[in-house]
């Protein structure tokens, strides 16, 4: 009985220790109930999806993190600057261009209750940005 409890405790500690990077990055803020106005702007949202090379804003939401990681690999590891989408479109890879209005990123992350993107601690934030 007692032993089982100790084993369980040990296991939890072990898991925490080895996943602490993941745990550390878990969301820290609570979701807001009011969606930001820009999410209602269909045209702006479609533009954003186009710049990332995905179908629509839903796919943007699902996959933008993964596409951004792909962009990084294509640029840094393959030395290429153009992203070819699944349906054959060619998109110039540019974080500056994609996030010409970085407050979109922050507002949406805020709304979803996720930490603000940390892109701008290294990549220089485009003008008109909402700051960190």
């Amino acid at each position: 009985m007692n032993k089982n409890r100790l084993v369980a405790l040990g296991l939890i500690l072990f898991v925490l220790l080895f996943t602490f990077p993941v745990v550390m990055n878990l969301g820290k803020s609570v979701a807001k109930t009011q969606p930001p106005a820009m999410l209602q702007d269909q045209k702006a949202m479609q533009e954003l999806a186009d710049k990332l090379g995905v179908k629509n804003i839903d796919e943007f939401r699902e996959r933008h993190k993964q596409v951004l990681a792909e962009w990084k690999d294509i640029v840094v590891r393959d030395g290429k600057r153009v992203y070819v989408t699944k349906d054959g479109r060619e998109i110039p890879i540019s974080l500056q261009n994609l996030a010409s209005q970085p407050q979109y990123c922050n507002d949406c992350h805020d709304y979803a209750g996720i930490e603000k993107p940390n892109c701008w601690t290294c990549h220089v934030e485009p003008k008109g940005g909402a700051g960190k």
Partner: peptide, 16 residues
């Protein structure tokens, strides 16, 4: 999950 995905295609800049 990420490592199992095939990397999306890229193309060099026309002036590269």
């Amino acid at each position: 999950a990420g490592t199992l995905l095939v990397r999306a295609a890229g193309k060099p800049h026309p002036k590269a």
